[in-house]
């Protein structure tokens, strides 16, 4: 069982792996062949070299960004989840606030960052607020969708056997909404890294975003590439973390679409 899943994983992992390898090779070859200057487009080997020589400072900035991301993600997701539950359980609240919630999704949250800096200074607080806002919407909206899509037959069954409102919520609606909630969390995970970096661009003394701004003014394209790679890796890690938690929490055959193909074989 474990061996076959490992095998399967390997089989689906090698084609993209080879594709990336080919892409890097082509990149390297093109840079050398056309003699492109490093400040325009550094070759992968140059980026790797630079990354390893400035590893300690990159690591410091990465940790700072990671911390910011995790705090913002945790607060924003919790907040989104609580609001979704509250709106679902109090229909009046929902009919009053849900349309506003959907409308306010059109406000580009990131654009509020400069405003927040003016109001709350350049410390941790405005940055956390930005990430919280960015994470809040996808979690709240998809969790509420999950509640709304509760299976009618199951709902009728619970009512017929005399389940109380809280029992229906705890035993049916909440577990039913979990897959949908996790797809919101996955989106929030990627957004939160982006939110952190942008918040750092606007005003910070450390973090990957700050590092990028610094290197930009020095035209150190190689270091900017290293920073981009770190951002991608951070997003991926957070995404995987959410997926892992989903695997532990969501039971039975109804996980997100990503794992469905694996189970059908």
């Amino acid at each position: 069982m474990t061996r076959s899943t490992l095998n399967q994983w390997f089989r689906s992992a090698w084609p993209p792996f080879v594709a990336v390898l080919l892409f890097l090779t082509a990149w390297e070859a093109a840079v050398r062949f056309f003699g492109i200057e490093a400040w325009i487009l550094p070759s992968p080997s140059v980026i790797a070299q630079e990354a390893s020589s400035s590893a300690s400072s990159l690591w410091m900035h990465t940790l700072s960004t990671l911390q910011l991301t995790l705090i913002g993600f945790a607060i924003g997701s919790t907040f989104g989840l609580l609001v979704a539950c509250a709106l679902h359980l109090v229909p009046l609240l929902k009919s009053a606030l849900y349309p506003l919630l959907i409308l306010s999704q059109n406000v580009p949250t990131i654009a509020l960052a400069p405003l927040l800096m003016i109001w709350f200074g350049f410390g941790l607080l405005p940055k956390i607020i930005v990430i919280t806002l960015v994470c809040f919407f996808p979690v709240a909206v998809s969790t509420m969708d999950g509640f709304a899509q509760t299976d009618r037959t199951m709902l009728n069954y619970m009512r017929m056997i005399g389940a109380k409102r809280t029992q229906i919520f705890r035993k049916l609606e909440f577990p039913h909404a979990l897959p949908s909630m996790f797809s919101g969390l996955r989106i929030a995970a990627t957004y939160s890294v982006m939110g952190a970096v942008i918040a750092e661009w606007i005003g910070a003394q450390k973090g990957i975003g700050y590092y990028m701004i610094l290197q930009k003014s020095a035209f150190r394209t190689d270091r900017i590439f290293a920073a981009i790679i770190i951002i991608v890796v951070l997003s991926l890690l957070l995404f995987l973390l959410v997926t892992l938690i989903e695997r532990l929490v969501v039971r039975g055959g109804r996980r997100g679409a990503s794992s469905e193909g694996g189970e059908s074989r």
Binding site: D151, P175, H176, R251, G252, G253
Partner: peptide
């Protein structure tokens, strides 16, 4: 009034996470 009968719906409606 609810909660006076045992019921089996037309579709089994088992809870997939249980």
């Amino acid at each position: 009034e609810r909660g006076h009968i045992g019921y089996m719906p037309q579709q089994p409606a088992l809870f997939p996470w249980r």
